[in-house]
Every structure is written in C-alpha cells, then in structure tokens.
C-alpha cells in the first residue's frame, strides 16, 4: 500500500505562536521553536519531520495561513 511522506514550511515571521497546529497534528510532528520571531512569538516547526504524512490538517487549521504542506508518495 503506498505510503505518503510529507513536510511543511512555516512563515516564521508571520506565525503568532497560537499552537493550534501543534495539538491538531495527530502525528505530533510540530513543536514550537525556542527562538522567537521579530514580533516575539515562538513559531511552529517540524520537531519530528519524519512523522509527517502531509495530511494538510495543520495548514487548514492555521488562522494566519502561514503553513504550506508538501507530500510525496513513497513505495513501501
């Protein structure tokens, strides 16, 4: 059965650190950075990139639309 692997990009400067993507991702891929952006917000990043399957839930839920999602099919 084909498996998917995904990845996300986050517009660090525009992320407001609301963490909704963190709790939405049921693969627990996303964490909050230690660093802060120019507004002083910690921003989301792929803490466990290998677990991402590119399901787009984080992108959909992000109020500010700062997450883009990529996905590739990988053969078993």
């Amino acid at each position: 059965m084909a498996k998917f692997q995904g990845a996300i990009t986050v517009d660090n400067e525009r992320c407001k650190g609301c963490e909704l993507c963190v709790s939405t991702c049921d693969k627990h891929v996303i964490g909050m950075s230690q660093a802060v952006n120019s507004k002083g917000y910690h921003y989301a990043y792929m803490e466990k990139p290998e677990a991402c399957i590119g399901c787009t839930n984080c992108g959909v839920i992000c109020p500010d639309g700062v997450i883009s999602v990529y996905r590739v099919k990988v053969e078993e």
Binding site: T9, G54, T56, G65, V69, R71, V72
Partner: peptide, 11 residues
Amino acid sequence: IIKPENLVYQK
C-alpha cells in the same frame, strides 16, 4: 519533499 510539484496545501 518541499518542491513546488509536491505542494498540496497553501494559503
């Protein structure tokens, strides 16, 4: 993975 052809969601 992060390549235009693999984009599945964006603003």
